[in-house]
Design a protein around this nucleic acid. Sequence first.
DNA 1: ACTATACTTCGCCAAGTGGCGAAGTATAGG
DNA 2: CCTATACTTCGCCACTTGGCGAAGTATAGT
Lengths: 120, 120
Amino acid sequence: MRRFLDITKALSDESRVRALLALRDGELCVCQLIELLGSAPSTISKHMTVLEQAGLVECRKDGRWRFYRLPGLSAADTVKGAYEWLALSLGKSPQATEDRKRLKEILRRKKEDISECYKN
Amino acid sequence: MRRFLDITKALSDESRVRALLALRDGELCVCQLIELLGSAPSTISKHMTVLEQAGLVECRKDGRWRFYRLPGLSAADTVKGAYEWLALSLGKSPQATEDRKRLKEILRRKKEDISECYKN
DNA sequence: ACTATACTTCGCCAAGTGGCGAAGTATAGG
DNA sequence: CCTATACTTCGCCACTTGGCGAAGTATAGT
């Protein structure tokens, strides 16, 4: 029950849901999520911690970056079930489509230029 | 997205989740849910309203009683998916088993005696 | 060593949530 | 009509949550 409620609480915020949907296309670092979701770094950081505690994402550190990704096949059934439900419900939603488009833009831009999340 | 978040928020409270699991065995009136969940009438009433707004339960009025039940086959895919996920995750949990047992007790008692939720 | 970037932690605030009891509404029964 | 039962609505309180910026930590580059 505890685990289940951790997941439902994690899923009851729009930014967190959008982050999960965005991660379908592959892992992302925090600064990319910041750009996509448009909130402050501290806010996104907190969101990703919530998702991680719920077991909905896994984390990998690489240099200065912290990459988040969807959990693998070893994930608990509850987590896998949550993803199936999420994909069924919002996989093709306008929000998901729009974000996917913006994400491509962001990823493309990364190749030439470096992030601007922390420029003042 | 709105609809989805209504559901995840509705699912992120233990009492509401227990209520949904209890309704698997058939419709229940508010006073039975009060007995099962052990909260004040006003609290349970609020919970059931949240579930109804999210589309997770349907309501039927009969005399003084208000019966809640799980939605039928006409329910939205997101709602049906939520139930599949819920059943997969908590269908056989200790809490659900315990509640099912207590519920039988409550339903049996109803046949002889009337509810005592509102006795002071 | 110094600076810049990437990210987290902390402290704060406004808004939302779950809990209750008291009071209100609705229906059934004497 | 009066009372009891079933339930809702309202007002309140304690707690949680999401947001931010400022300050702190960690790593990479110079």
